[in-house]
């Protein structure tokens, strides 16, 4: 009995990277904040490169609390959207490599609570989100952000989201 040949790695990576690019590049506000996403398999890390316009207190200087909230919210929404997209993509139900890509609808934030643990330093910041619960209508997502040390979070947040309708 012969097993089907595994899919060539460049095809797998190409498909996943194209899907992620399509999801991220379509949102102007993500570009405005300069947030990018690193992907390892299905794991995403949001990266916010330091820029002077992100500063909230020029005296310290520290990253604006609103920027921190926005960064965490972007990371949470992307993780949730990516999780939804991943299953459909891997099952071959959607193709995001073509030029006429129709993107899935994005989840809507119901509420978002940010816990500020230390001031954001003027350097790159990273965030990873975890979908704690994802039902047909609602999802709960936790997200953590750090800078120099992974164990020393500068902020964390929990948000609830309304899932997008499956069909148009």
């Amino acid at each position: 009995m012969s097993r089907p040949k595994p899919e060539p790695v460049h095809l797998v990576k190409g498909r996943r990277d194209a899907a992620l690019r399509a999801l991220v590049s379509g949102v102007p506000y993500i570009q405005f904040l300069g947030i990018e996403f690193d992907r390892r398999g299905d794991e995403l890390t949001a990266v916010m490169r330091y820029d002077d316009k992100l500063i909230g207190n020029p005296l310290i200087p520290a990253i604006h609390g609103g920027v921190t909230a926005a960064f965490l919210e972007v990371a949470a929404i992307m993780e949730l959207s990516w999780t939804l997209l991943w299953e459909e993509m891997e099952a071959g139900l959607i193709d995001l490599t073509g030029p006429e890509t129709v993107l899935p609808r994005l989840p809507k934030t119901i509420d978002f609570t940010v816990d500020y643990l230390r001031s954001g330093l003027p350097r790159d910041a990273y965030a990873r989100a975890r979908v704690n619960r994802s039902g047909r209508r609602y999802a709960s997502v936790h997200v953590e952000a750090w800078q120099d040390n992974r164990a020393k979070l500068f902020a964390q947040a929990t948000g609830h989201f309304l899932m997008p309708d499956r069909e148009e």
Binding site: Y29, G66, V67, A69, A70, F112
Partner: peptide, 10 residues
């Protein structure tokens, strides 16, 4: 984006 509204509120 909700993040921009958060920044204004903060």
């Amino acid at each position: 984006h909700g993040g921009a509204v958060s920044a204004l509120l903060d």
